[in-house]
Write a protein that binds this DNA or RNA. Structure first.
Lengths: 344, 344
DNA sequence: CTGAAAGCGCTTACAG
DNA sequence: CTGAAAGCGCTTACAG
């Protein structure tokens, strides 16, 4: 493999100059730079990342942590982030926690991030006090996506989960529904995605604003995915006196609800209305009403906030403004799964 | 940050011994190892990956390349692979091509993999002759998933796409359908996932086996996703004399077909039967008949074939058996989207 | 089983 | 604008 010395020799300059020229530092004359680039090209030279990292102290790598890449929101976020990160000249180290607490702990043992990355993005990853200590000790820039994941000094990009849930619930109220159920994430779940707590709060507040008292028997906790939505809905139906509408904390749970309702012989929306949050790629196919949230934009914006201050491949490390979270807007999308409550 | 010298001093041994003890090499006495581990623990020592890589020549990192992480198959594969890779003590560098040829080219410029990883996994990534040369020059172990991605000397894990398509088509034939349309990927698409060519072949062979001649007007190419399925189906309906059944090359296209049919006022399966390939997480919700393929298992198996020969974190680099591809079984799953053709 | 020393291939002050 | 030299923090023969 050709190394920097070979290029230096061919170009007739020192290795220091090769290093500067190849990285585009300004302190190289145009003529020299040209010769170096030509030599590097001719020899098919590629810098050794390990050597460069060891000498330079920067890894050119960003860690991205998500709970489950197979869920709609996280897949879309990672796709947007990946694009931004690679265009900025960085590599992306992926950590998918797979919904397992054990993986979260392994990752957050300092050694697994220590000196491996220049920056960290945490997407909907619950953090305990000990984790915050570990992250602080790492002393790296970072950014988080989703409420419930907050690291002092790191900016955060998210939606207003309370408001989104309120909008969903009010949509159902506006259609005349009064027995509105809510299905959401289980706080006992390992690695619970905590945004659902805000969503429940929005649901309850909307009910109260309408003069209704939240009914615990209409509030079911389950996993934050399709199967969880199915199980929660089955449980709801088992309790008797079924709701006329269901607000699910995410579209995947709402889809599970659709399945359970169909299997129970109930029609959507004639017998039961259903709404979720996300605007999942398949929500249109299913005719699911939802509160759309901009997943791609959250990913892109968070990546930008993380990398811009780092100054790209060759720039100087910088500072990230922490401040208050950046809240992106959500939007009610009415499809076929919600309809007026039947008069009775 | 504490370094190996600090540990060596505290433990009263040389850095060489610390290095050996920490990596679990056998040539260290139990007593010494204990002292070293205690010292490392006490100092919260974490090895510097860059230094270790530069000195040792191994990166402890695997590159995983997928076309689009947001599609069902690739998300599931990455989740399975990520789990295996991290448990084996490696890091995962993610490359999502985002369906763009330009990204593929950037990745395959030698510099972007050169000395960055110990091994490569290519999932459904089309390769040209020049790419094969680049990969060969990298001289790294690798593995591929999906037909259409073949690298000399690398093992491949996949399903039998021809057989899967035949099974799907025969299912429709068995229900009495004769006008069976096919919607599949567009070969002109950048970064086309080439498995669809095999799937078309299976479709055509099944028709011929049944004594039917494939009708070009019933064979539409589009993008390999939901929107592509919708567009292809709209095109099909525009041609007049609609098919009584549609075999889509993947479930996401089949879901797009469901949308288009519904919007055209056609009922599934009463007017048109639909079947796909995958068994997508939402196929059950939609009642979509399909040919299930084991995505998770393909990922896990490929990861295992890639890493086992590398001997884990501390073992010796090894050889991968190339040989013939490992073909995993598929299975017909009949749901509500396919039904007998109406007599007429 | 252990250590001294060289070396991995770069980047970075420092000097000019 | 450019170069000589030190140094980044490990691992690996080699010797004992």
């Amino acid at each position: 493999m050709t190394k920097i010395d070979d290029v230096a020799r061919l170009a007739g300059v020192s290795t220091a100059t090769v290093s500067r020229a190849l990285r585009g530092l300004p302190t190289v004359s145009a003529a020299t730079r040209r010769r170096v680039l030509a030599a590097a090209e001719q020899l098919q030279y590629a810098v050794s990342p390990s050597a460069s990292r060891l000498a330079g102290g920067r890894t050119g790598t960003v860690a991205v942590v998500v709970p489950r890449i197979t869920r709609w929101f996280f897949g879309v976020v990672v796709e947007a982030v990946e694009d931004f990160i690679h265009h900025a000249g960085y590599d992306l180290l992926l950590h998918n926690l797979g919904g397992r607490e054990q993986n979260r702990q392994r990752l957050l043992r300092a050694a697994n991030l220590h000196k491996r990355v220049d920056a960290i993005m945490l997407v909907a990853t619950p953090l305990r006090a000990a984790d915050l200590t570990t992250l602080a000790a790492l002393d790296l820039p970072g950014v988080t996506i989703s409420s419930g994941t907050t690291v002092p000094g790191w900016p955060c990009v998210r939606i207003d989960d309370v408001a989104a849930a309120k909008t969903a619930t009010r949509h159902l109220l506006g259609l005349g529904h009064r027995r509105i159920a809510h299905i959401s994430g289980d706080p006992d779940d390992e690695l619970a995605f905590t945004a659902h707590l805000d969503r429940r709060r929005g649901y309850q507040e909307a009910l109260r604003d309408a003069g209704l008292r939240p009914d615990p028997s209409l509030d079911v906790e389950s996993q934050f995915d399709i199967a969880g939505g199915t199980r929660a809905t089955e449980e709801l139906l088992r309790r008797g006196d079924p709701p006329t509408a269901i607000f699910a904390a995410c579209d995947e749970m709402a889809m599970g609800a659709l399945t359970a309702l169909r299997d129970a012989g109930l029609r959507v929306p004639q017998d039961v209305s259903v709404i979720g949050i996300d605007d999942h790629a398949l929500s249109g196919v299913l005719g699911l009403s939802t509160i759309a949230q901009p997943a791609e934009e959250q990913g892109r914006l968070a990546a930008k906030m993380l990398l811009d201050p780092l100054g790209g491949q060759t720039g100087e490390p910088g500072m990230i403004a922490a401040g208050s979270p950046v809240i992106l807007p959500t939007r009610l999308v009415v499809r076929e799964s919600t309809a007026p409550a039947r008069a009775n």
